[in-house]
């Protein structure tokens, strides 16, 4: 297996899954194995687990709307210094800046809409691409 470099996306490992929440365990476990191999600390692993859960659930549920014909593509790389992940769906995309603030008083009692906020809070870098169909997130070692 070649070394994937988090600073060079052309070297990232690739994992393609069906739009099925159970399938999201596959890339999550692959990335967790890499984090453990690179001896990431507990706090960083907590943050990355949360980010992966939010990004993959969004891709399967809101992006691909559970359509079995639409894959979710996960690309990732882990080094001793950082982890970078790209999650891509085949949905219609969205405008991240139009997602309402879930902490506003009128939205606080609503049960959804916190995934993107948590992703931004826990990662050092989050970038939405291709009209929201692809999200890149990265975290430096804590």
């Amino acid at each position: 297996m070649t070394n994937a470099d988090p600073k060079n996306e052309s070297t990232f490992h690739v994992c393609v899954i069906r739009s099925d929440l159970e399938q999201t365990e596959v890339p999550k476990q692959l990335i967790l194995d890499e984090l453990e191999r690179h001896r990431f600390d507990e706090g960083s692993i907590f943050a990355i687990k949360l980010a992966m859960e939010e990004a993959l659930t969004n891709a399967v549920k809101h992006g691909n709307c559970f359509d079995p014909c639409k894959p979710v593509t996960v690309r990732y790389a882990v080094s001793d210094e950082m982890v970078a992940v790209i999650v891509r769906d085949e949905g219609g995309g969205f405008v991240p800046t139009e997602v309402p603030d879930p902490t506003s008083p009128d939205r606080l009692p609503l049960p959804n809409g916190r995934g993107i906020m948590l992703l931004r809070a826990y990662m050092d870098s989050v970038e939405y691409r291709d009209q929201g169909r692809e999200v890149y997130f990265a975290k430096r070692r804590g």
């Binding site: 907590f46 687990k49 949360l50 859960e53 939010e54 659930t57 049960p111 959804n112 916190r114 995934g115 906020m117 948590l118």
Partner: peptide, 8 residues
């Protein structure tokens, strides 16, 4: 660990 779905 928990996720935003758990918060919901």
């Amino acid at each position: 660990h928990l996720s935003s779905a758990a918060l919901g």
